[in-house]
């Protein structure tokens, strides 16, 4: 029997779900292998009660999200976190740098903020709340990588996310190093697996895939400083996608 799959979103811009719909060459093949029971972006129905695989994008930002995730975890055999928000807290995670009560006041008006945003939480990645079985990082996800992970899920193979940093991919692409052009690039410490796509398109890495477990942050900070950046420049640049992870540990 084909696995029953649900796709849902927490705090995010749905960009990763859009990426799934962008897999025009493969989506029919994929749909032939699964029973797509619910797709938040494309379905008007409700989440079913029973399913086997949950694909979740977005950061955890409310108590409701926590309750939903706990129910998802209790129901699904496999949980796949897709995108930067779900994997590192992503851009929503930047809110960890702020005084949330004050910010809600700014957005919703004095006095009303805390009431309107009842149940709010500092944005966090999925695995701060539930165990996650498979990870597809990136902002947005890379469809070929998603397909590789899905293939592993269908085969019952364990999660395999590269632990190394981006630089080797750039060398393979023969991309001229941004440090050699006097620019900071977060590929030095960011998890590989996207093929160093942004640098190959002439944009330095912004760290959307999260800090690689094998990254040497101490050495990277020293290199950033030696290349003429102010102290703290590397960590500041990392914040855009990695604040929640940083706060968490």
């Amino acid at each position: 029997m084909a696995p029953r799959v649900v796709v849902l979103s927490l705090a995010s811009d749905f960009g990763c779900q859009v990426q799934l719909s962008n897999m025009t060459d493969e989506i029919l093949d994929v749909l032939g292998l699964i029973d797509l029971s619910y797709w938040q972006l494309a379905s008007s129905g409700h989440m079913p009660d029973a399913y086997d695989v949950a694909i979740v994008e977005g950061a955890v930002t409310t108590d409701e999200h926590v309750a939903l995730l706990e129910s998802v975890r209790a129901t699904a055999g496999v949980v796949i976190a897709i995108g930067a928000c779900a994997n590192t807290g992503g851009i929503p995670g930047l809110a960890n740098l702020l005084d949330l009560d004050e910010r809600y006041g700014v957005v919703y008006g004095d006095g009303d903020g805390p009431r309107v945003a009842a149940g709010r939480r500092a944005p966090m990645p999925l695995d701060s709340v539930i165990a996650v079985d498979y990870h597809v990082p990136g902002c947005p996800i890379d469809p070929p990588e998603f397909l590789r992970v899905l293939s592993r899920v269908l085969l019952g193979l364990k999660n395999r996310v590269p632990d190394l940093t981006m630089c080797a991919s750039c060398k393979i692409n023969e991309t001229v190093c941004f440090f050699d052009r006097g620019e900071l690039c977060l590929g030095l410490v960011t998890r590989a697996g996207c093929g160093a796509r942004c640098p190959s398109l002439n944009r330095p890495c912004t760290g959307c895939r999260g800090i690689a477990p094998d990254a040497n942050l101490v050495a990277a900070r020293a290199i950033s400083i030696a290349s003429g950046r102010p102290e703290g420049a590397l960590d500041d640049a990392l914040r855009i996608y990695n604040t929640a992870k940083e706060v968490r540990g």
């Binding site: 940093t165 630089c167 060398k171 030095l188 094998d214 040497n216 050495a219 990277a220 290199i223």
Partner: peptide, 13 residues
């Protein structure tokens, strides 16, 4: 070892 980024750039090139 403390200096090395473990990035593998040396091996690739």
């Amino acid at each position: 070892g403390d200096l090395c980024l473990s990035c593998g750039a040396c091996s690739m090139v």
